[in-house]
Write a protein that binds this DNA or RNA. Sequence first.
DNA 1: TCTGGGGTCCTAGGACCC
DNA 2: TCTGGGGTCCTAGGACCC
Length: 403
Amino acid sequence: MERQILHVDVNNAFLSWSAIDMLENGSEIDIRTIPAIIGGDESKRSGIVLAKSPIAKSFGIVTGEPIYFAKKKCPGLQVFRGDFEIYHNYSNKLYNLLLEYTDVIERFSIDECFLDMTGFLRGRDLKEVACEINKRVKEELHFTVNVGVAHNKLLAKMASDFEKPDKVHTLFENELETKMWTLQTSELFMLGRKTVPKLLNMQIRTIGDIAKTDKMVLAKKFGKHGQMMWEYANGIDNSPVNNKVELPKSIGNSVTLPSDLKSIAEIHPVVVALAEKVGYRLRKYKLVAKVVNVQLRTKDFVDYSHQKHLPFATSSTKEILKLANEILDIMYKNESIRLVGLRVDDLESEDEVQLSMFSSGNSKQSNLDKTLDEITNRFGVTSITRASRLNIKLNNKKEKNEV
DNA sequence: TCTGGGGTCCTAGGACCC
DNA sequence: TCTGGGGTCCTAGGACCC
């Protein structure tokens, strides 16, 4: 049976949501109507464009480019910092509105949802529902969305990417040739900047060219990716709308430093802070990890990483840190380092793991982690080191006792 | 001239075993 | 001296997404 799928995509999500928030807090200007972007902090070397207003876009500014470039393209450009707490709030408001239409919603990202309307239409037309969602979001939540209407996720997503903003588009199988095959290959989902030039070398310029190429030729050249792009170009996608909230398969944090680090002694404290962050998040999910991975980026933008297995699955900050330091000692080659990253892999649920005598379940270390986690829960994530954070806790306790 | 941070999935090559 | 063929596991790196 044919499935009835919608893809809802917030237009200029971060910029729109910041705009609404500022208006609600008494701002006189709507940053959606001026040359504006949401971006990072240039002085901390994290200055890239995360979202742009339509006027900023008309100056040729693209998402992901350095703010420095954006300013050159558009003198007078206003730059605003993002706030992910606010964004999560608006994302939840959208999700709750969509829940009125179907139980089967996949939150694909903070600003995108897939809806499986199969069995929830109650005699209504799929496109009519899409138009109603588009209208209600605008009227009730004060931002706009594009809605893609199709019979599978891939085509719904491609449809929502057509003309923006505030539009509803269909992409049914009989519309492939006119609406999708004419587009450049770069427009196809999962075709990125590395693959497009390779296709061009094969005289493949449009999505239609991919669709008409022998699937085996693409499979031979690009492996699984090649088979997938052929299927996508032909509008084939049987993946279900997954409404289950899945546990993460890896947890990592990384940081670009305000200036390059030039010795292992300078890198160590960064790894400590990252291990605390990663350990905290791991314990929040009640997961344990078996693999630790350290990533470095040199001043010349060369990335490299090393990983090692932990002796036992754990969520202990101390154990993760210990192995991370071992890895760092092995891999560091006296270069100038721009970014340090730490991630844990091969995650398992805490209670599915047999706790060994040394593992995190019954040790002093576990109590220390718990204590520090409580502080983090109360005061938020800080960059205070473990030793000094423990002091805060002790002082805190003292005050309590005195009261 | 400057280039974020969070992820998932795939692949190639080496080590090791039978 | 010249020399197999699977299979699995592990690691590093790359491509892509938002």
